[in-house]
């Protein structure tokens, strides 16, 4: 299982802040996970259309090309706006 988290405008667009799911065998990068989730259609297409989508794996900000594995915590979010 993996845990997927969504924050800010993306959280509102997909309508949930987190979910757990079994990692499909063909999904092995952050980008592939984004495409897998966006493939659900409807509100999930927000993941595909988000400009400048950012991601973190196990609480480190990473490029979307980063590999993922079972047990990971993967977060999707817009560019950060703190400070």
């Amino acid at each position: 299982m993996i845990t997927v988290l969504f924050f800010a405008g993306l959280r509102e667009a997909v309508g949930t802040s987190s979910e757990s799911l079994a990692l499909p065998s063909e999904v092995n990068t952050v980008a592939a996970l984004r495409d897998h989730l966006a493939g659900r259609g409807d509100k999930w297409s927000a993941l595909a259309s988000a400009k400048n989508l950012r991601a973190a794996v196990n609480q480190d900000m990473v490029p979307l090309t980063t590999a993922i594995k079972d047990g990971d915590e993967i977060a999707f979010f817009p560019p950060v706006t703190g400070g």
Partner: peptide, 14 residues
């Protein structure tokens, strides 16, 4: 530290 925080720390303002 402020410049890094602005682009690297996961905060979002609404």
């Amino acid at each position: 530290i402020m410049d890094y925080l602005k682009t690297q720390a996961p905060f979002w303002k609404k």
